[in-house]
C-alpha cells in the first residue's frame, strides 16, 4: 500500500513536470503572443495542478487531500480567466497576430478598409 501511494505520487510528479516542461517549450518556440498564451495557460496550469494533487496523495490524509484539491480547482479555474483577459486586452490594444495565423475572428470591421 505504501509503495502504491509512492508510485502514484511519483507518476503525478513526473507527469506534472513533463507538462510544465512542454509549456515552457511552447512559450519559447511559438511565433506569436496568442499561441504562447495557449501553451502557457493550459499545459502550465495542468502541470502545477498535478503537483498539488501529488502532495495530497503523498500525505494520505483527507484534510490535506481536500486542501490540495481546493488549490487544484482554484488554479485550474482562475488561469483561463486571466489568460482570456490578457488575450482580449492584447488584441484590443492592437498587438498583431503572427503571419502563420489563418484568420482573425475578432478583427475590427474598420480595419478591413
Amino acid at each position: 500500500m505504501d509503495i502504491l501511494l509512492a508510485l502514484a505520487t511519483a507518476a503525478l510528479i513526473l507527469a506534472g513536470s513533463v507538462f510544465v516542461f512542454a509549456a515552457t517549450l511552447g512559450l519559447n518556440r511559438f511565433p506569436d503572443l496568442y499561441s504562447r498564451m495557449h501553451a502557457a495557460s493550459k499545459a502550465g496550469t495542468v502541470g502545477s495542478a498535478l503537483m498539488l494533487i501529488a502532495v495530497g496523495v503523498h500525505a494520505a490524509d483527507l484534510a490535506i487531500l481536500a486542501r490540495s484539491f481546493a488549490g487544484f480547482f482554484f488554479f485550474v479555474l482562475t488561469a483561463p480567466v486571466s489568460a482570456h483577459l490578457l488575450a482580449k486586452a492584447a488584441h484590443e490594444s492592437g498587438y498583431p497576430l503572427s503571419d502563420l495565423s489563418v484568420r482573425d475572428e475578432l478583427k475590427h470591421p474598420a480595419a478591413e478598409k
Binding site: T24, L33, G44, A54
Partner: peptide, 29 residues
C-alpha cells in the same frame, strides 16, 4: 509587454510546482 506578462504568469505556476515538491520532500503539508 504581453509576452512578458504571460511568462510571469507561467513563472507563478512553476513556483507553485516548486512549493509542492518541497512540501513532499520535507513533509510540511
Amino acid at each position: 509587454l504581453p509576452d512578458r506578462v504571460i511568462a510571469l504568469d507561467m513563472l507563478v505556476g512553476i513556483v507553485m510546482g516548486f512549493i509542492a515538491l518541497v512540501a513532499i520532500r520535507t513533509g510540511f503539508t
